[in-house]
């Protein structure tokens, strides 16, 4: 969408290899001692761009996101933001998780204030900013509620408000709408695009839904697993603002087929049996079940 603008986030031959086993010296099968979650990932995300990463469960797309967030450490290659190497988490990146991760003991407003507290803002400043972003996601009347009183969709909107409140340069979204029902998801898509349009944030959006990726993004990165790597990237040239009719358009279908084929052709090689390890790496679900 914004061709020629500055690269905000990039990676250079990024890789992550997990050591398996409990480090007990003599492993019976030395080959099983490591697992390559990511290999040679090279991406460049432009400022203000909406990029989706789509791929089957266990392909390492969430792992990639967590490395960009600074929460996981890569074992090879490099990741950059603003040209500086990413070495840990920071308020210039906001992460939004599938499980919302709202603090249940804090009201909606206090949740949104969390990052601002970490930032060291004064109480009245915090409250003012928090209210602004709660209003942005349309939940002003719920400012004093606790998370348990909200529906899944509302919780995720609050999580978005919380991340936006401390003004990061990029939102890293990890399958944020996977846990809500279909109708809510459609509403949240419109909501997210509206917020994106208003805030001009760069968004990296991880999903296993091809349609979701196409509908939202300027560009879709297709990831395949074992090892997790970027197979292809597809510029989405659907007009904006986007509406639901686009989903039945011919162009949308072309994109869908293209991505689908990429994922299909790699299916056979990804069905290996592996030990359950971390949360994001090794869900050995057959791909057809997920995509």
């Amino acid at each position: 969408m914004v061709d020629g603008s500055k690269i905000l986030i990039s990676t250079e031959d990024l890789g992550l290899v997990y050591k398996l086993g409990r480090g007990k010296g003599k492993s019976k099968n030395p080959k099983a001692a490591t697992l390559t979650a990511l290999r040679d990932v090279n991406i460049g995300i432009r400022e203000g761009e909406f990029v989706s990463v789509v791929g089957p469960s266990g392909c390492g797309k969430s792992t990639l996101l967590y490395i960009l967030a600074g929460l996981y450490r890569n074992t090879s290659g490099k990741a950059f933001i603003h040209g500086h190497e990413i070495t840990g988490p920071s308020l210039d990146r906001g992460i939004i998780m599938q499980a919302y991760a709202l603090f249940p003991w804090r009201t909606v407003e206090k949740n949104v204030e969390f990052g601002l507290e970490v930032k060291g803002l004064k109480k009245n400043e915090r409250a003012e900013i928090a209210r602004e972003f709660i209003e942005l996601v349309g939940l002003s009347e719920f400012a004093d509620r606790y998370p348990y009183e909200l529906s899944g969709g509302m919780k995720q909107r609050i999580a978005i408000a919380r991340a936006l409140a401390y003004d990061p340069d990029v939102l890293l979204m990890d399958e944020p709408f996977a846990a809500v029902d279909e109708q809510t998801r459609t509403l949240l898509h419109d909501e997210l695009l509206r917020i994106w349009d208003k805030t001009h944030k760069t968004i990296i959006f991880v999903t296993h839904s091809i349609d979701e990726a196409i509908f939202l993004s300027d560009r879709v990165l297709v990831m395949t697993s074992s090892p997790g790597t970027i197979r292809d990237e597809i510029e989405i040239e659907l007009p904006r603002p986007r509406n639901n009719e686009l989903k039945s358009s011919e162009l949308f279908g072309t994109y869908r087929n293209k991505i689908w084929q990429h994922l299909q052709s790699s299916t056979d090689s990804t069905r290996e049996v592996t030990t359950i390890l971390g949360r994001h790496i090794l869900d050995t679900v057959p791909q057809e079940a997920v995509i």
């Binding site: 906001g94 992460i95 998780m97 249940p104 970490v118």
Partner: peptide, 29 residues
Amino acid sequence: VDQNLIRSAQSMGISTTGLFFKVVIPASS
């Protein structure tokens, strides 16, 4: 304590002390 809460707080660059007082203790309350 829900690991997602810890990660979420860490993603905001919270200090270890902050993590204890703002997340770990309230979450275990």
